[in-house]
């Protein structure tokens, strides 16, 4: 390692900050890439608000000749496509999954981090072992279980098996290990047990962490496809992703309607991104600590 001497600090000498010319090139490059990254969003909006004729016109049209707000009503009035129902299913599934995961994983993580118990290590390793098996691979075994419980095409089958997320429990344990013990000890002196100090001291002081976990769980749940596809056999248990996929692979497609459905499907998450991005970024940074 080079030794750090006490010399005048070069101002702004950071990772890769170079000359003025290189900074300008960097900025222009970022603008171009950002424009490319936004193209798919632009296409969703353009196509959702166009007529089929506009979309398939021989010359490229950057904007629809006339904005078709009627496409929204058309999508929801189409009886062949259970859009409203699948949106409702997705909302119920995502919200309950988030709440349930948060409850189960924080309590488990806290217990593992804070309550001294002879076999705590064994329990912890039993949870860690499940991280070795990626959840997507277990879709078949889990399906076997869910079908024998009679939960196929049932929201219970969509929600309950996904709640016991070993990875989230692991993250919670790591987080609670670093939670300042003094706060809890004060609570103990005031006569609170583990349960009391967990709910009254630990949880209220962990809002940032909980929000990060909650947002990332919500986004993952809303966007998941394989499990809802396996379980959602009948159309009244479709989530919005399964409905979209069915729609996409159908023989005949109504292009504006298809893109309107896509727009509706990403709308909740765009809101999450606009208002909760701070927690999301934090959640991603925490998720990445896995490996």
């Amino acid at each position: 390692m080079v030794s750090t001497q006490h010399r005048p600090k070069p101002v702004g000498y950071k990772a890769g900050v170079g000359s003025r010319a290189s900074r300008i090139a960097n900025f222009i490059g970022l603008c171009v890439i950002a424009a490319v990254f936004l193209i798919p969003f632009y296409l969703i909006v353009r196509n959702a608000l166009s007529t089929t004729e506009d979309i398939t016109a021989p010359g490229w049209m950057w904007f629809p000749t006339e904005i078709q707000w009627g496409n929204v009503a058309e999508l929801f009035n189409d009886e062949k496509v259970p859009m409203a129902r699948s949106l409702l299913n997705s909302a119920v599934v995502s919200v309950l999954t988030t709440v349930g995961t948060l409850f189960l994983c924080t309590t488990a993580g806290y217990g593992l981090a804070r309550i001294p118990y002879r076999h705590a290590d064994k329990v912890f390793y039993a949870i860690l072992a499940t991280l070795m098996v990626p959840s997507a691979i277990t879709f078949l075994p889990s399906f076997v279980m869910v079908s024998s419980l009679g939960w196929v095409s049932d929201l219970r089958g969509l929600i309950i098996p996904t709640l016991f997320n070993g990875f989230v429990a692991f993250l919670c344990r790591q987080y609670f290990l670093s939670f300042p013990k003094e706060l809890e000890e004060a609570a103990r002196v005031d006569g609170l047990g583990y349960w009391g100090s967990f709910w009254r001291i630990v949880i209220p002081n962990s809002k940032g962490f909980l929000a990060a976990i909650a947002v990332i769980t919500f986004v993952t749940s809303w966007n998941s496809f394989l499990w809802p596809l396996v379980i959602g056999r009948s159309s009244d248990s479709w989530t919005v992703q399964v409905a979209l996929s069915t729609f996409l692979t159908a023989q005949t497609v109504n292009l504006p309607q298809l893109f309107m459905a896509a727009a509706v499907a990403i709308l909740p998450l765009v809101f999450v991104f606009l208002f909760l991005q701070r927690f999301l970024v934090q959640g991603v940074a925490q998720t990445g600590l896995k490996g």
Partner: peptide
């Protein structure tokens, strides 16, 4: 902007 696509599912 670079993070926004993460809001899209693979289906969308």
């Amino acid at each position: 902007v670079f993070f926004l696509p993460f809001a899209c599912s693979y289906v969308v």
